[in-house]
Nucleic acid binder design. Structure first.
Length: 596
RNA sequence: GCGCCGAUGGUCCAAUGGUAGGACAUUAGCUUCCCAAGCUAAUAGUCCGGGUUCAAUUCCCGGUCGGCGCACCA
């Protein structure tokens, strides 16, 4: 094997050849940043998604929703993506470099929010500040500033009157539907809502196969909490070991990783929020279970400048591939930012009612003006007068001590007899208040997780002097569960029994590959390369004799084989797939073949 | 978006101004009782567009896609 090829290149070649993933629309020249998952890849991805669902929705008692990928423009005005995802670019006439116009202006002037400038204004700023290209020093004055928005735009319905955008993250689909979802949660915090789906970003430069694409799959959980009352139950994860790379260590000259437990990290404030600690712990266990190499895995804290302004703490899960660390999940404390924004922009209620432990009794000044008097008296201004009276009662109850009270509305003064205002001080019982929940967001990149699993599973070894490539995928996520072969294809009894086993295992819910072509070794190699964890082989030894019919089960990574009864296959393979049984236990129970 | 490099069967490579060859893989058959064995046969390729030329996969230009670097990645 040519060792000058990188891990990524060898993986890309295998992925293409064995049906994991490949560039889309190749027949038409391809489309950069889009990938199609082949038969193996689609199955692996689907298994990863199912495993994620099980852990982050089912096991946590959370709700999953499935929102559209296209949403109307106002959603993104509220979320900030329309402005925030907009990049102002200016291109150097000499060297052709593109630069962020807003960054250039901010770096060379007093302006701090150049992002809000219009394109024309930004171009004028560049001219008046006499900015030059940071790369080659050429004069940038007179260059036009262009907009580049990372969101894909489209039109909803005919014409262009209703612009819409493909969502740049699945999260907005959850936030936008919050007013209804909270009903399903019966208005009780905390609750979590998940979504697995596609998101779209028109990246300037997609790279590294499926690591940075323009269409990708996210698995996100939005945990809605009452920041003052809700604490996670850390008992299940407090002893979970984490490898942390905090901001302080990243900034230090000799920064080091910190190995600690979730409990200690939260206790010592390394992780700024108990909820984040909780999800880091859950994620650690989940990644380990699906087969991420934990020696090539870490949690890295965002540096202060990296973090969104509303986020108090943020950690990325990162995996190492080819010497690079890639972000495979982000865990962000988003405060009430998202729901507040939608609450301001949308005509709906993005709060939850929080009951006090004990209802409070307060005295409150109220008015109930007699509109049958105010109406004829003040005509069109009557409504405004009423509002002014209500505001005054709240602001200054003493004003109602006199016979007459005077309020101002629309610049005019109006005198109202106090008895017409129906002023009263009432005792009111207040049982709670509306709060905007805070959001803790674990957000997983499914494609990058798939890529990590493949990269970490990619192995090469030597069997009897022959090179062998295999994918050491865990039985729980591997695209095919088991290969079933007759040892040779010209013996009817063996072929018939293999056919029966295939049918039985498929009925039992396994993804089975049948193969009777070529030599047995070739068939084993084929399955090794797609990562099928076990192969069942029907041979004559298993048919003969008075006892029960047996077959061999071969383990992919070691090539070891056990001989087990046909009737036990479904149970045993199921137990191994669930992680309840190891191959070593099978070897103990059934006996291992001396040597292949 | 910019710069450099590249693109030949499914995969990995070779060759050539006169339309291409191998290895592996795949398919069919024979053989085969445990790790890419053997035999026979078959399928299958010069990224797209334009130019130069009698003739372009080859030379030139543009594009697309890929790799790397820069930039970008709230």
């Amino acid at each position: 094997m040519a060792e000058d090829r990188t891990e990524g290149e060898r993986l890309t070649e295998l992925a293409k050849r064995r049906g994991y993933y490949f560039g889309s629309s190749d027949a038409y020249g391809g489309a950069s940043g889009f990938y199609t998952y082949g038969p193996q890849g689609a199955a692996l991805k689907s298994n990863v998604e199912d495993a994620w669902r099980d852990r982050f929705a089912t096991q946590e008692g959370n709700m999953e929703i499935d929102a559209p990928t296209i949403m109307p423009e106002p959603v993104f005005e509220a979320s900030g993506h329309l402005d925030g995802f907009d990049d102002m670019l200016v291109e150097c006439p000499e060297c052709g470099e593109s630069h962020r116009a807003d960054h250039l202006i901010e770096d060379n002037s007093e302006l701090e929010d150049a992002e809000t400038l219009s394109l024309e204004a930004a171009a004028e700023e560049i001219a008046s500040l006499e900015l030059v290209c940071p790369n080659c020093g050429a004069d940038l004055a007179g260059q036009s500033v262009t907009n580049f928005n990372l969101m894909f735009e489209t039109n909803i319905g005919p014409g262009s009157s209703t612009p819409g955008y493909l969502r740049p993250e699945t999260a907005q689909g959850i936030f936008v539907e919050f007013p209804r979802i909270k009903e399903y949660a019966r208005n009780r915090l905390p609750f979590g809502v998940t979504q697995v789906g596609r998101a779209y970003r028109n990246e300037i430069s997609p790279r590294k196969s499926i690591v940075r694409t323009r269409e990708f799959t996210q698995a996100e959980l939005e945990q809605f909490i009452d920041p003052e009352r809700d604490e996670p139950d850390l008992s299940a994860v407090e002893d979970t070991e984490l490898l942390l790379y905090p901001a302080t260590e990243q900034e230090a000259d000799d920064g080091e990783y910190i190995e600690t437990t979730v409990g200690d990290a939260v206790e010592e404030g390394i992780i700024g929020n108990a909820w984040l600690g909780y999800f880091l712990g859950i994620a650690q266990g989940w990644y380990e279970r699906i087969g991420v190499d934990m020696d090539r895995f870490r949690f890295r804290q965002h540096l202060a400048g990296e973090r969104a302004h509303y986020s108090s703490d943020c950690w990325d899960a990162e995996s190492e591939v080819d010497g690079d660390w890639i972000e495979i999940a982000g865990f962000s404390y988003r405060s009430d930012y998202d729901l507040s924004k939608h609450g301001e922009h949308a005509d709906d209620d993005f709060t939850v009612f929080r009951q006090y432990d004990e209802p409070k009794t307060v005295e409150r000044a109220v008015v109930d003006p007699d509109m049958s008097v105010l109406g004829p008296e003040f005509g069109g201004a009557a409504g405004d007068v009423k509002e002014a009276l209500e505001a005054l009662a709240e602001r200054d109850p003493d004003a109602f001590d006199d016979e007459e009270v005077t309020v101002e509305a629309d610049g005019e003064e109006y005198a109202v007899p106090t008895d017409v205002a129906n002023f009263a001080v009432e005792e009111q019982t207040i049982s709670g208040e509306h709060i905007t929940p805070h959001v803790v967001e674990p957000s997983f990149g499914v494609d990058r997780t798939v890529y990590t699993l493949l990269a970490h599973a990619y192995e090469e070894d030597e069997v009897d002097g022959e090179e062998r490539t295999y994918l050491s995928l865990s039985p729980g996520v591997a695209p095919r569960d088991v290969g079933v072969f007759p040892l040779v294809s010209n013996v009817d009894e063996l072929v018939d029994l293999a056919d029966d086993i295939v049918a039985d295992l498929r009925t039992a819910g396994f993804s089975v590959v049948y193969d009777d072509s070529g030599s047995i070794g070739r068939r084993y190699r084929r399955q090794d390369e797609v990562g099928t964890p076990f192969c069942v082989t029907v041979d004559r030894d298993g048919l003969e004799g008075a006892g029960e019919t047996t077959v061999t089960i071969r383990e992919r990574d070691s090539g070891r084989q056990v001989r087990a009864p046909v009737g036990a296959l479904a149970d045993e393979l199921g137990a191994v797939r669930r992680g309840d049984r190891t191959f070593d236990e099978l070897a103990e129970n059934y006996g291992e073949l001396a040597d292949a």
